[in-house]
Amino acid sequence: MELLCPAGSLPALKAAINQGADAVYVGLRGDTNARHFAGLNLAGSGLDEAVAYTHKHGRKIHVAINTFAHTDGWERWQKSVDTAVRAGADVLILADISLLAYAHDRYPKVEKHLSVQASATNPAAIDFYRNLGISRVVLPRVLSMQQVKSLARISDMPLEVFAFGSLCIMAEGRCYLSSYMTGESPNTAGVCSPAAYVRWDEKADGSLESRLNGVMIDRFNADENAGYPTLCKGRFQVGNDLYNVLEEPTSLNTLELLPELFNEGIASLKIEGRQRSPAYVEKITRVWRQAIDAVQEDPQRFRVKDEWNQVLNSLSEGSQTTLGAYHRKWK
């Protein structure tokens, strides 16, 4: 079972490799990947160095080109595929049918994984993409553990699941909430609730209001921790109730599911967070390396260590974690 860690920068990549990641995933600078943030991602010599460092340590590097190519400038996405292959990427993570078809045709021998943004949740969808040359599917975070198991048993396609990090509660690649409010979405711009549209208003009573393109996402009392206004994690009103209508600010943590994921033969555990700091990546990777080693050694006797959860909770959104959709009750 592979540990696949995020690297938004060269220092983060080195931290992940040094702490024992089996593979890392990166994006290229620009809007061809789903973490299109200022100062993030690799280009030019940075990419070459990333590949060299990864390969020197005998690990693999995956390159995510997982936004949907625009009609105008399609060649930019095509070139990203070329750039990644030429730099020596071991794996391309793709979502767009046109790019999968291009990569399948042009680079049949390069391994291709279906990005979570393609939102493949069932065997028929997997078969569709199998014809485009994919050899692994990253599952959306909408499936329960039971559903992951049944898919793993029905399909011979190797599966990758999200193990830890920010939690998308919507089927990835089919969520337009962000463009509804800002004009920019993960599919078209590689962003969700982009920072350029965020406004903080501090009130006389010490409270703080967060807005996204003018829409109030949340309001925090002076004694509350104010979280980033990701639009699906705000507090809104339904009827007479004011609450986190869609989801609380929380992170996904599947440590306790590790034995089950291992027993089902899940190929890879993905840690979310290319936008995170090298220090974050270092701490997370260390914990997950230990946990995966422990489960591989003896899945029956595997126990989640308190110290692992302490580290993970301290690095989580709102300092809380959830099993998310893996746990049916969450739904």
């Binding site: 089927a171 699906c232 109730d241 209508v245």
Partner: peptide
């Protein structure tokens, strides 16, 4: 009204404090 997102979670059930099941 535009269909904007789909989730594993049922938000209507959640709004009534029920689980999806």
């Amino acid at each position: 009204h535009l269909p904007l997102a789909w989730s594993a979670r049922c938000f209507t059930a959640r709004s009534e404090d029920r689980q999806k099941d």
